[in-house]
């Protein structure tokens, strides 16, 4: 085994451990809030953790540092995964997570850039964060900045027309500093995405629109890192990573359950979910 491989495995293990912690934070936060969106937060946990703890240049001590990379959570209802990543990164105290959705909290039901340090732009109304991320990438290009923009969209969200307006614009302006990631868990509120309005073939759609596309297992940290590395090597066009995921991932009674799209776990469910996550490996 080469040193390179060993280092890589160590990195993957560290991110995996951090992702477990992020998942327990999501569960606890939603349990305390009594409402919110566990399913889509858990499906995105490995992707968001990899971005904040491996991929992106950012500085919690200076959230608006101009040289930072940007992350836009276009599927804003997955706010818990973003808040957990920001708290774990040191943008605000971890204790704040228990105040999610409360009247005096800076942690709104959907991300608010003016209330929460580290949130790049307010999102929640689907499709708009993706378009705003394209605008950010364009602004950074104008300034010849080295910063990159990462944006996570949902599969149900991809039914929004603005997603495709923005998807046409980004390649037109060769925004190779932009990486879209599709959290493809195939569940939306009313059922399976493929049963409601199918977005397949997702990769072929973005390829046809002029994006470089990569398909991965969105829970395999090594594949996530590999895709993000590949995106950096692609010049002259944006990259869309189609991340196949499982809604509610790593909590047995939430996995693939559409009911946990927008329902918080009970006290007992919190205990069971955290138990399962902790049993799956070390926390980080």
């Amino acid at each position: 085994m080469t040193t390179h491989t060993t280092n890589k495995q160590a990195t993957v293990s560290l991110v995996e451990a951090k992702a477990r912690t992020i998942r327990t934070r999501i569960i606890n936060m939603l349990g305390a809030a009594g409402s919110g969106h566990p399913g889509g937060s858990l499906s995105a946990a490995d992707i968001v953790t990899t971005l904040y703890f491996h991929e992106m240049n950012h500085n919690a001590a200076e959230p608006r540092w101009p040289g930072r990379d940007r992350f836009v959570l276009s599927k804003g209802h997955a706010a818990p995964v973003l808040y957990a990543a920001l708290a774990e990164s040191g943008y605000f105290p971890r204790e704040d997570l228990a105040t999610l959705r409360k009247i005096d909290s800076h942690l709104q039901g959907h991300p608010d850039m003016n209330k929460t340090p580290g949130v790049e732009i307010s999102t929640g109304s689907l499709g708009m964060g993706f378009s705003a991320a394209v605008g950010m990438a364009l602004g950074l290009k104008i300034d010849k900045s080295e910063s990159r923009v990462y944006t996570l969209i949902g599969d149900g969200e991809s039914q929004e027309g603005i997603i495709w307006e923005a998807s046409m614009f980004a390649p037109q302006h060769k925004l190779d500093n932009l990486v879209g990631i599709l959290d493809y868990n195939n569940l939306q509120i009313d059922g399976r995405v493929s049963d409601i309005v199918d977005i397949r073939p997702a990769a072929a759609k973005w390829s046809a629109f002029g994006w470089h596309t990569i398909e991965i297992d969105g829970h395999n940290i090594e594949q996530i890192i590999g895709a993000l590395d590949e995106a950096k090597s692609i010049k002259g066009k944006p990259t869309m990573i189609i991340a196949n995921t499982v809604k509610g991932k790593n909590v047995s009674f939430m996995e693939g359950q559409v009911d946990f799209h927008g329902k918080a776990p009970s006290k007992d469910e919190v205990a069971q979910a955290c138990g399962e996550i902790e049993a799956s490996g070390p926390l980080g």
Binding site: R70, M128, S131, A133, V134, G135, M136, I162, M168, F169
Partner: peptide, 21 residues
């Protein structure tokens, strides 16, 4: 930047551009 016939994208992109100053 001409956004083409896509006013919704134009507005949300403007918001993103505003975050970059």
């Amino acid at each position: 930047f001409d956004c083409g016939v896509a006013e919704q994208n134009m507005m949300a992109m403007a918001a993103g551009l505003a975050t970059t100053g």
